[in-house]
Design a protein around this nucleic acid. Structure first.
Lengths: 177, 177
DNA sequence: GTCACATATATAGCGCCGATATATCGCCCC
DNA sequence: GGGGCGATATATCGGCGCTATATATGTGAC
């Protein structure tokens, strides 16, 4: 699924600028399971405009670049609908943490402990964020939020129960270098 | 973390060809939280050889391309160690399923049900795979496997308990088109 | 017998991320 | 009051990496 499709999806929730769409992927409701960045979003919006799937209205701003507000067209809506009916790609998950942990038996114990601590703290923060419902959410957004919360909670629980497995395997470093 | 680093990591578990490294990412122990493909692995191995981080021994085969067996050098091992000591990138998770589910209220109910059924079946299969320990595994590999199992189990459980949230929101289609 | 699959390397095309450039405003701190 | 930082806003370049394809052959299924 290309960034163009993701942009169409973002615009279902209302007209937006490229900047705002980027924020949806960075902090917003999409951030936990999607990513896209300026380098792909701006070209995507240009292409979508050329293809008539979105329209672009420039709103002049004083002493700033014009705000370009994009809106879905009927064709764009159909195109998105179509894409959502196709075979979906399986989830992609990439974790440098788990990669690193594969080599726990080659790393100093302090490093492994710090890694787990860091991870637990960021995961708890995210779980916290995902625990707060928003009244404006569509049913799908609410579902996705709760899904994320369930997965993070399970991860945290697993880490706390099993961190000893990798910490014990790590290298007990000597007194000093 | 670049593919070159991932290749160094793969070679810690023993000498291997590009083909075998690819399999580790495709089916093997890395497949659940890493990805890399031919298009990046072969160039990476060439670059690593040039930089002296791995060595390459060509083993002639009858009526086939030579098998190029790569091995880590001391420098390569140090380089990996170094990379594992740097700040790690946060997990990346990309799900077209969750993206699609955001629009559950715009999709036919049959489609949503089929999506959930499909997902449950593939996740159960993966959870099954991850439930079987391997005696050759390093502690880290065992930990990563169990981690994956815990997360998949939680996902399955959540889906089964909450699928009604999106199925009820979906569109009850008319008798026929 | 042939069709699909596994072994094995390699590259071209293209999509996307990360970094950078440009410009201005508001806010905090000194 | 001034300096620096972060947010607002658009845009592009370089390079990395995925997808698909090319090449060549052995093996097992039907």
């Amino acid at each position: 699924m290309h960034v163009t499709t993701l942009c169409l999806g973002a615009l279902v929730f209302g007209d937006a600028t490229g900047y705002e769409i980027n924020k949806m992927f960075e902090d917003g409701p999409f951030s936990h399971f999607l990513d896209a960045s300026y380098g792909s979003i701006y070209p995507a919006l240009t292409r979508l405009t050329e293809e008539g799937l979105v329209t672009c209205k420039a709103e002049p701003q004083e002493r700033r670049p014009d705000k370009k507000i994009y809106s879905l067209t009927e064709n764009g809506r159909r195109q998105l609908s179509n894409a959502l009916g196709q075979q979906l790609a399986p989830d992609k998950f990439r974790s440098e943490f788990l990669f690193t942990v594969l080599f726990a038996h080659l790393l100093p114990r302090d490093r492994v402990r710090a890694l787990v601590d860091q991870r637990l703290s960021t995961m708890k923060e995210k779980a916290q964020q995902l625990s707060e419902p928003d009244e404006d959410d569509t049913p799908g957004m609410d579902f996705a939020r709760q899904y994320g919360h369930a997965v993070f909670t399970a991860s945290i629980d697993f880490l706390e129960r099993n961190r000893h497995l990798i910490e014990d395997a790590a290298i007990e470093e000597k007194a000093h270098a």
